Amino acid sequence: YTRELQKLIESKNLGDKVTLCGNTNDVLSKYINADIIVLPSAYEGFPLALSEGMSAGLPGVGFRKCMGVNEIIEDGRTGY
């Protein structure tokens, strides 16, 4: 899947904007150095990654109609 995503990034000329960072054991440092946390799920039970990112101070971005996401993100206040 990584190769497929990298080809898509290159085909859209987004190499200077999108970076696939791979795996890490130090998730908190990644959140601290990020600008936003995005959860593109259309369906989600409890969005743990979104909750972790927001607990590190990141604004969240997700689908308004996605259950779980729409209960954690306060539109316009803690994210969109």
Rank of each mutant, 00 (worst) to 15 (best):
L39M: 12
N25I: 13
G15A: 13
G15F: 06
G45F: 01
A34Q: 10
G57Y: 07
N25Y: 14
G62K: 00
S51D: 02
S51T: 09
L39G: 01
F63H: 06
S51I: 10
P47I: 06
R3G: 05
K12Y: 05
N33W: 09
N13R: 12
E71G: 13
V18E: 04
D26V: 14
K17W: 06
L39I: 08
G53A: 03
G45D: 01
Y1N: 13
V38R: 03
L48A: 04
S55Y: 00
D16Q: 09
E71Y: 04
E44V: 08
Y43E: 07
E4I: 12
N33E: 15
T2Q: 11
N70I: 06
D75N: 07
E4K: 13
L28R: 14
D75V: 02
C21R: 14
C21N: 11
G15D: 11
K7H: 06
D35K: 14
T2V: 12
A42H: 10
R3W: 05
S55P: 00
A49C: 10
M54Q: 07
G57L: 06
G76L: 04
Q6K: 11
N23W: 10
L58H: 04
S55N: 06
N13M: 12
R3M: 09
I72D: 04
N25T: 15
L8K: 05
G76T: 00
I72R: 04
L50P: 00
L39D: 03
E74N: 03
I73C: 06
G57M: 03
C21T: 14
E10W: 01
L28T: 11
N13S: 13
L5F: 02
N13W: 04
M54D: 03
E4F: 15
V38L: 11
S29I: 14
G53Q: 06
V27A: 15
P47L: 07
G53C: 11
L58A: 05
T78M: 12
L58T: 03
D16E: 14
V61K: 01
T24K: 10
E44W: 04
Y1E: 15
S55V: 01
R3P: 04
I73H: 02
A34G: 11
L20G: 10
I9F: 03
Q6F: 02
T19Q: 15
L39E: 09
A42F: 09
G62C: 06
N25S: 15
P40M: 01
F46Q: 09
T2A: 11
K12P: 00
